[in-house]
């Protein structure tokens, strides 16, 4: 393994390039100066105070959380149905239906957003948070279905049959056997779709009707140099939040694996 020191150096550079900018975030969030440039001026928490005082930001955050939670829940629940139907049952038109679910994955989001906008306007549905959720479910579904299909596929069919054989009904079998065993998949799906939704920009911008949405709001604020430091403060909090989410997800995933005695294959996250 000592043959290519060059590769190690390359990997370090690569990681620095990827994550370096993220380290800049907290650095300038605590820097006492409006201008984002070295040298640093000293420590302050005033950007955080400023950020917390921003009523519009609070509203945007609330809207985005509502959207992300709703989209993630909807996409995951629908994904469970779709995955179950694909893995367990045979029905006419299955490949076509699956193909259609997966299409948003390869379609430029701009086109999805424009098409949705045109359709919604022409059938007279007013733009709102609800229409954004609709759009987000659409683009989240491929991820949810892909993750959940693999979770359902790894489930041994005879486990369900054993439960039926031992007197349980289809429904109680689903609740007692299937659901607990695909729970790590459901959790993964929820987290991924939540993440996709919360930083999604194009659909939120197109279908938002002027409602403040976090991603759109942040983008807007960057036009005003005075607002940049408080956005960096917000970014710092978001990074912290992501790390917490990842840690929680990883904890549950590992616990799930330990409990069912599976092999740890690295997991999705």
């Amino acid at each position: 393994m000592k043959k290519a020191p060059f590769l190690g150096g390359y990997a370090i550079l690569y990681l620095l390039f990827l994550y370096g900018p993220i380290i800049i975030l907290p650095l300038f969030a605590f820097n006492d100066g409006r201008i984002v440039a070295f040298p640093l001026n000293g420590f302050t928490t005033r950007w955080f105070t400023e950020m917390f005082a921003d009523a519009q930001l609070k509203k945007a955050l609330l809207n985005s959380l509502t959207i992300a939670l709703s989209s993630a829940t909807l996409a995951t629940v629908l994904g469970v149905f779709a995955a179950r139907a694909t893995v367990r049952y045979r029905w006419p038109g299955k490949p076509a239906a699956l193909g259609l679910i997966m299409v948003p994955l390869v379609l430029p989001e701009m086109i999805v957003a424009m098409a949705l906008l045109v359709v919604l306007l022409s059938i007279g549905i007013p733009l709102s948070i609800f229409t954004i959720i609709l759009g987000h479910v659409l683009i989240c579904m491929p991820f949810a279905v892909a993750i959940l299909t693999s979770a359902f596929q790894s489930l041994d069919r005879s486990l369900e049959e054993a439960s039926l054989d031992l007197g349980e009904t289809q429904w109680s079998t689903f609740r007692l056997i299937v659901l607990p065993l695909v729970m790590p998949g459901i959790l993964s799906s929820f987290l991924i779709t939540f993440t996709i939704s919360i930083d999604e920009f194009i659909i939120s911008n197109f279908l938002g009707s002027g409602q403040p949405i976090l991603s759109v709001y942040i983008f807007g604020q960057f036009r005003f140099p005075a607002k940049v430091p408080s956005m960096l403060a917000l970014g710092t909090l978001l990074v912290l939040f992501s790390i917490c989410m990842l840690a929680i997800a990883e904890y549950f995933r590992r616990r799930g694996i330990a409990k069912t005695g599976g092999k740890d294959t690295g997991g999705f996250l």
Binding site: D156, S158, L159, S163, P180, L181, K259, T260, G261
Partner: peptide
Amino acid sequence: QSYAIFPH
């Protein structure tokens, strides 16, 4: 054949 022991 696979015993179908409930792993959880």
